[in-house]
Design a protein around this nucleic acid. Structure first.
Lengths: 251, 251
DNA sequence: GCTTGACCCTGACGCGACGTCAGGCTGTGC
DNA sequence: GCACAGCCTGACGTCGCGTCAGGGTCAAGC
């Protein structure tokens, strides 16, 4: 195969292949009499690995040392790439969660601290996050996928939505005032309505994620303060109702 | 706040902030009498957005036009960033799936075509992949997370593992030869053993993913050929047993 | 056999997003 | 009052290519 074909196959430019040849990262294993580069199947394999490591953010020089390590067999590379990709998956998921927290905060008019906003850029320790996310969101995988529907909302929608949320809040406060238990079917129905409202308007919110939000309402003082300002005891009330509802859905 | 603090908070260097100031992407809203940069909270918010868009691969000039668009309010940015992050999540997931396919192929000594290996780098159309992945892996979310255990395998492990896999295969072939139905408890038990073997050795493999592998064994001719070479009809046999077992686990 | 047009070659310069000194001013603790 | 950390502004270096420039190659069609 010559450069053009390889470039088209791999989705890179010819110039890139020239560059990789020049710096010795990937030199084609042959040349024609007239000097044309000839790529063998093994060269393609190497290119494949190069592109994956590059995608993962390695500088080309480091890629070269990785690939030229005599102790690293193909399986070794696959395992490393697999691990790195899973790290990236986790990191992206954390960023999605952070943006969602901001969205949730914004709809309630709560300001996050600067530290909180930037925390997702800090030096990323997957193990640390893992446990936290697990606890916060439960099955954090299941909800992440289906959230693609939230795209393409217009500004007007958000006003309508805000009104809708206020309505549910008001009825929660009413239930609390008239002594309806937080784990009663009536309160759970309100919680379910709350969940469906989020689901329709903001992002897909399966019961497990909803339960996570519920916990946040009592654990994060700013969310607590938001509800407490509507009515005293409402944060705990909503939290309990939401979690009871989630348990009901799961059971 | 002055540069050093902001840099530490956001996890960037002072030089980066100088650069953003120079190119007009993020100029601090004030200076002290002696010329020190003074960053206000609003500057931090802008920086936060800058870093997220940068992380998502936008060139800085484009980031500037995005942020200076008078029609784009904060919610607009959150929605866009959310959408872009979900795209990235999907793309990373596809790459993970591709690497896993390679791993699976390698353990069976099957070569993937160059096109297949590079397909994940092609111009990425999320919708296209979505349907395919859904069909291939079922609940592709649920299994992705728990795979972090596969890290840190040594070379020796893989030899032991290969022997283990061969053993299960041999017993599958035996069951097929002696007329044990593929959806019988006995065959399903073998399938479960197969799944657990993968789970222990290669990557976490919940029933849904295992069922996906089972489908691949009959749909991808090279995997089919692998099993058929062990015994005629074995590909379909294993596939059926695996999927029956997955259904049993789910029920 | 000759042209045409697509593809290949090797320099060489340019660019984006900073890293990295150099040389000098500022602000705080002892 | 001085040491030392932290701030300033140039200015040059680096990495991973993009983008010409100037010239050779090759299969197709006339």
């Amino acid at each position: 195969m010559h450069v053009g074909e390889v470039a088209a196959l791999a989705g890179v430019t010819v110039r890139t292949l020239h560059h990789y040849d020049r710096i010795g990262l990937l030199s084609p294993s042959g040349r024609t009499a007239s000097g044309y580069r000839q790529y063998a199947p093994a060269d393609l394999e190497r290119l494949h690995r190069v592109l994956l490591y590059r995608e993962l953010g390695f500088p080309l020089e480091e890629v070269a040392t990785l690939l030229d390590d005599p102790d690293a067999d193909p399986a070794e590379h696959l395992r490393r790439q697999h691990r790195l990709l899973l790290d990236r998956l986790e990191r992206t998921r954390a960023m999605v969660a952070a943006v969602e927290k901001e969205m949730e905060a914004r709809t309630m008019g709560i300001d996050l601290t600067p530290e909180e906003k930037f925390e997702l850029f800090g030096d990323w320790l997957p193990e640390e996050y893992e446990a936290e996310a697990e606890q916060r969101w439960g099955d954090s995988e299941a909800w992440a996928q289906s959230q693609r529907r939230t795209r393409g909302y217009t500004k007007d929608d958000w006003l309508r939505i805000k009104a809708e949320g206020d309505d549910v809040e008001r009825r929660f406060a009413e239930a609390l005032r008239s002594g309806v238990p937080a784990d009663s079917p009536q309160a759970m129905d309100l919680a379910e309505e709350h969940r469906r409202s989020i689901q329709r308007n903001f992002y897909d919110c399966p019961p497990a994620m909803h339960a996570g939000l519920g916990r946040m309402y009592v654990e994060d003082e700013r969310f607590t303060a938001y509800y407490e300002r509507v009515a005293p005891g409402l944060a705990q009330y909503v939290s309990t109702a939401v979690q009871a509802n989630a348990a009901r859905q799961a059971g």
